[in-house]
Simulated scan of single mutants.
Amino acid sequence: MNVAALLEAARAKGIRIATAESCTGGMVAAALTDVAGSSDVVDRGFVTYSNGAKQDMLGVRAETLAAHGAVSEQVAREMADGALYQSDATLTVSITGIAGPGGSEHKPEGRVCFGLAMTGHKTHVETVEFGALGRANVRAAARDHALALLLGALS
């Protein structure tokens, strides 16, 4: 992923980006801000690892968490929408998943849900089953997928 090209595409369109991350713990924001000059594009990153943080910082509803669990497209949608609302960004990406080790029959290791919100557009959500690649590899794959979603939204 060419993060510099992603940032340049956002810059050319006057778009500011925020991230809402759970299982990646800020890896997407770090990838974006590793590029010098990214401050005119990157507004902020929310690391909301706990359910309480998702609620407090992003406005994820307790009812949504109770009904669907933290690793769900419903929570990913509320995270992305919350990041849009709680920031000066016009494009946000959210990530919530099970990096491992572990998981369950219903929510296996490697399942990651993503949200992509953009001012004036319907929020997109999707789930990717990366599989039991190991914690570091699931997190890296989720980071790269989130960056690709951002780049796709700018195309």
Rank of each mutant, 00 (worst) to 15 (best):
T127K: 06
C113T: 09
T33E: 04
T127F: 00
L116P: 05
A31V: 09
G37L: 04
E63F: 07
L147W: 00
E105M: 12
T24L: 02
Q86H: 15
G69C: 08
A9Y: 01
G120C: 09
T123L: 01
V60K: 05
S38M: 05
K13F: 07
S155P: 02
A30C: 09
A132D: 14
D81K: 12
A83F: 01
L149A: 12
Q86A: 15
S94M: 04
E78L: 03
I95E: 06
F130A: 06
H145S: 15
N51F: 01
Y85W: 13
A140P: 05
T123S: 07
E63I: 03
T24C: 10
K107T: 15
S38T: 07
E73P: 09
V112Q: 07
A29E: 12
A153D: 08
V112P: 04
D34C: 01
A5C: 12
A148F: 00
F114E: 10
G97F: 01
L32F: 04
G82V: 10
A148E: 15
T48F: 05
G97T: 09
R44P: 03
Y85I: 13
N2V: 01
Y85K: 15
A140E: 15
E105Y: 07
R11I: 07
E63M: 04
E78W: 02
T24G: 04
A20P: 10
V35K: 06
A9E: 10
E73V: 11
V35C: 10
Q55W: 00
L149F: 00
F114C: 10
G52T: 13
H124F: 12
R111N: 13
E129P: 01
R44E: 09
R61Q: 13
S155E: 15
S38E: 07
G131S: 07
A10I: 11
A70F: 02
A99E: 08
K54G: 06
K122H: 13
A80K: 01
T92G: 09
T119F: 02
V3E: 01
A76P: 02
S94T: 11
L58D: 06
L58T: 05
G100E: 06
G25V: 03
A4S: 15
R16Y: 04
T119D: 13
R135H: 04
M118H: 09
T24D: 07
K13H: 08
S87Y: 05
T127D: 05
Q86E: 14
